[in-house]
């Protein structure tokens, strides 16, 4: 299944970055399985291991977009098969919320997407990543202010702790 022709296709260029929040039980397991089969993936994608997609908050998605990512994806278990029963339903809601938020500030909502798969469906994971890469490749880089914007700019120093709540409170206001 591997092959140079099928690596990335007409995807995003090397400077793009897609952060994939993957749940440990299904999506990350599917990613591992596809990787063990040496299935090529576009290098734009960066995996972040999460216990459950229920842990992914709008803060994570918005901060990632604000601080360097051109796209974010949340990959979890099939709906109804969450290992914590409800986590991915929360994730679906939050992704939809972030999409509405992006649209309202003039950012393409497809920069944030939710995918579901079982641990036994590596091709679904591969397809999801490639789809994301194709979509982001079709969009211009996400414009940012010179200082990078987001919380790094807000909290001078870069690695200091997050001022709890600020981004989310803003997000809730928008909702």
């Amino acid at each position: 299944m591997a092959g140079a022709a099928s690596t990335t296709g007409p995807g995003a260029t090397a400077d793009r970055k897609i952060v994939a929040f993957c749940c440990r039980e299904c999506a990350y397991a599917a990613a591992d399985a596809s990787a063990n089969a040496r299935t090529p993936l576009p290098p734009t994608v960066r995996l972040v291991l999460m216990p459950c997609t229920g842990r992914v908050s709008p803060l994570h998605l918005l901060s990632a977009l604000a601080e360097g990512a051109d796209g974010v994806m949340v990959a979890g278990c099939l709906l109804g098969q969450c290992h914590y029963r409800e986590g991915n339903f929360h994730a679906v809601d939050r992704v939809a919320f972030v999409q509405r938020l992006l649209r309202s500030v003039g950012v393409e909502p497809e920069r944030c997407r939710m995918f579901t798969m079982s641990a036994g469906e590596p091709p679904k994971f591969v397809a999801a990543v490639r789809e994301m890469d194709r979509v982001i490749g079709g969009l211009p880089p996400l414009p940012r202010s010179e200082d990078g914007g987001g919380r790094k700019a807000a909290s001078a120093g870069g690695a200091s702790s997050l001022a709890a709540g600020e981004p989310l409170v803003a997000a809730r206001g928008a909702a």
Binding site: M50, R55, S57, Y84, S161, G165, L168, V169
Partner: peptide, 25 residues
């Protein structure tokens, strides 16, 4: 340890061990 609460919390008071907002971000 699913972390749903941490993602729902409006103030960031509740955090999941090993997966705090700071660590993830």
């Amino acid at each position: 340890g699913c972390g749903i609460c941490a993602a729902e919390c409006p103030t960031g008071a509740i955090q999941l061990g090993g997966f705090s907002d700071d660590e993830v971000l």
